[in-house]
Amino acid sequence: MSAAAIINEDQRDCYQELTNVAMGQAADRLARLLNAYVVLPIPKISVIENSDLNMALQGATSDNSVSAVCQGFIGAGISGEAMLMFNDASFASLASLMKYSGPLTQAAELELLMDTASVLIGACIHGIGDQLEIVFNQGHPVVLGQHCDMADLVAYGNNGWDKALAIEIHYTIEHVNIECELLLLFTEESVRALNKKIDYLLD
């Protein structure tokens, strides 16, 4: 089976539209938190092989020094993993938008990272779930690393899957230097269950 065959074009289009709506809800939450305008991209839906994860992540941020959080979620026989990666250059602007007044220590950056992750990941996962009538339960967020090289993060994702559906959303904030990438990964088994829900919507 070719890499692309786990979803067809209609399904890809539908995943993209569901993501579009969910990421808009997440952006709205972030915009209110930061009092800024979040620029929404067209989300990228692709099927990746385990070995491509490195490339997907490398393309995710323009800077190699990143900080990242991941959080698993599960519901209705579907499990997925959300990863939020921040370009490290973003933290200064993020701190000022959040009116964070103290020195920007590693601990302070961690707090900013976790706060943003909880808003973006939570809203996005629930936005997708709502449209498919799935209640996703989220696991605890895990910090994958701060100020680390993208290549070091990749080791994390390499656990026991061949192919996955990847949903990539590249958020930027207008007028300031804040850039982050939200990556949702669903393994083949979960995609089969998701496709059933998608086909129902497409019908």
Binding site: N20, G24, Q25, L40
Partner: peptide, 22 residues
């Protein structure tokens, strides 16, 4: 799907009659 208040304001300024959330 862009439901930020800013987006709604911008499109109204550009002449959109109404805004419906996806």
């Amino acid at each position: 799907g862009d439901i930020q208040p800013d987006a709604q304001e911008r499109v109204k300024k550009l002449g959109a009659m109404a805004f419906i959330k996806k």
